[in-house]
């Protein structure tokens, strides 16, 4: 899939930042207006790759666990208010030994999806450590979202939803529980990120700020048991 930038428009320079570059892609199936880098973070086996595959291909990688090696770079174009937004998604390996290579790419990311597994207390406990790392390596204005994955496995739940909400509130980041298996909130998470980034990139000085928290809350109500289409 060759992506050739034929024209570069930089709408953002008037705001002083030039990192949100509007790009046009020549190839038909890869057409997009604007591109953002999103990174999936979290402990090993919390379901980062599954969430990504659910979002990208609408499928669930059941059965075998295959650990991601290093970082895995993929693209998906989504529609946000009639604008083609290309999400360039870094799927990272949760293992410690890949930390150095993931750190190197933190600062490129405009948004971070931080995942834990609701059936694994350690993965939740490590969220604080992850947030510390994020503050150390990522951009200052990076969009962070906390996701409690595997919400379909209610029987094995060890992390209460309220605990997730509390932690998210403490750090001022949006939160939701997701399930890569059922697809619950997966699309919403990425769409909310895409909307937020798109608003930031195209915002005029006196436009109202996009309220990601409110958006998520409103959409979460709507989705309830099933994911957005």
């Amino acid at each position: 899939m060759s992506t050739r930038k034929t024209s570069l428009t930089d709408k953002q320079t008037k705001n002083g930042t030039s990192k949100y570059v509007l790009e046009r892609c020549a190839s038909v199936n890869e057409y997009y207006d604007i591109a953002f880098k999103v990174m999936l973070l979290g402990d090993s086996s919390v379901g980062k790759t599954c969430v990504l595959v659910r979002f990208k291909d609408g499928a669930f990688l059941g059965g075998n666990f295959i650990a991601t090696v290093g970082i895995d770079f993929r693209n998906k174009v989504v529609d946000v208010d009639n604008l083609k937004v290309k999400l360039q998604i870094w799927d990272t390996a949760g293992q410690e030994r890949f930390r150095s290579v993931t750190h190197a790419y933190y600062r490129d990311a405009q948004a971070l999806l931080l995942l834990y597994d609701i059936t694994s207390k350690p993965s939740f406990d490590n969220i604080r450590a992850w947030l510390t790392e994020i503050h150390e390596y990522a951009q200052k204005d990076v969009v962070i979202m906390l996701l409690g994955n595997k919400s379909d496995v209610a029987a094995e739940r060890v992390v209460k939803k309220e605990d997730g909400e509390k932690l998210a509130k403490e750090y001022g980041v949006p939160f939701m529980e997701t399930s890569a298996k059922t697809g619950l909130n997966v699309e919403l998470a990425f769409l909310a990120i895409a909307k937020e980034l798109k608003h930031r990139a195209t915002q005029q000085p006196n436009d109202p700020k996009f309220q990601i928290h409110d958006y998520i809350e409103s959409q979460k109500q709507k989705s309830g048991c099933c994911s957005l289409v």
Binding site: T49, G70, F73
Partner: peptide, 11 residues
């Protein structure tokens, strides 16, 4: 090979 769609970068 499970991740054949993406671009992998690994030490």
């Amino acid at each position: 090979s499970a991740f054949q769609a993406g671009e992998i970068w690994t030490p």
